[in-house]
């Protein structure tokens, strides 16, 4: 028993291999093979050439929506409605996306940018993951 208030729990990263933090802020972490193939999420063996000369690279932070939908039933980590889909990163791979943007902007071809922040909680601890947002919203900074 303690009589002090419980301090808020430190946020944790969803996974320690999918995000990179540098002076430029957060990016998705990709695996670039010597053959040029880029994978996300990161891999140890290139699925294209089976090579293991893999370098971790920052993936582009912007892209366009390739496909999108809004889910109207609850998921393990989200209350409805929430939106998911795929984003074609600018000059990069196509990645699965959780979207946090208005329905009016959620359309194939719409430009989006990466945002890294707590998206849900596990036992009271915020979990930091990635999502994509539209461009007309001010950055959370």
């Amino acid at each position: 028993m303690t009589d002090t208030a419980t301090p808020p729990l430190e946020p944790k990263l969803l996974r320690d291999d999918i995000l990179l933090h540098s002076a430029a802020g957060w990016t998705l972490a990709g695996s670039r093979c010597a053959c040029g193939h880029i994978s996300f999420p990161p891999v140890n063996t290139c699925p294209e050439c089976l090579g293991d000369l893999i370098e971790t690279v920052e993936l582009p932070k912007t892209g366009t929506i390739f496909a999108c939908t809004t889910v109207r039933m609850p998921a393990a980590n989200f209350k409805p409605p929430y939106s998911i889909g795929y984003v074609d990163l600018s000059g990069g791979p196509r990645v699965f996306a959780h979207f946090q943007m208005g329905q009016e902007m959620l359309k194939i071809g719409a430009p989006v940018r990466l945002q890294v922040k707590p998206l849900w909680e596990e036992h009271g601890r915020p979990v930091v993951a990635y999502c994509f947002v539209g461009f007309d919203r001010a950055p959370d900074a």
Binding site: R15, A67, V71, A75, A76, F78, L119, Y130
Partner: peptide, 29 residues
């Protein structure tokens, strides 16, 4: 009573993917 999710710990599943969602994205395309 759930929308069938991928295996526990699957990245896309954690981000909200489920079976009908995948087929809804197919519908979208």
């Amino acid at each position: 009573r759930q929308l069938i999710p991928p295996e526990k710990g699957d990245l896309e599943g954690q981000l909200g993917a489920n079976m009908p969602g995948i087929f809804a994205l197919m519908a979208n395309r």
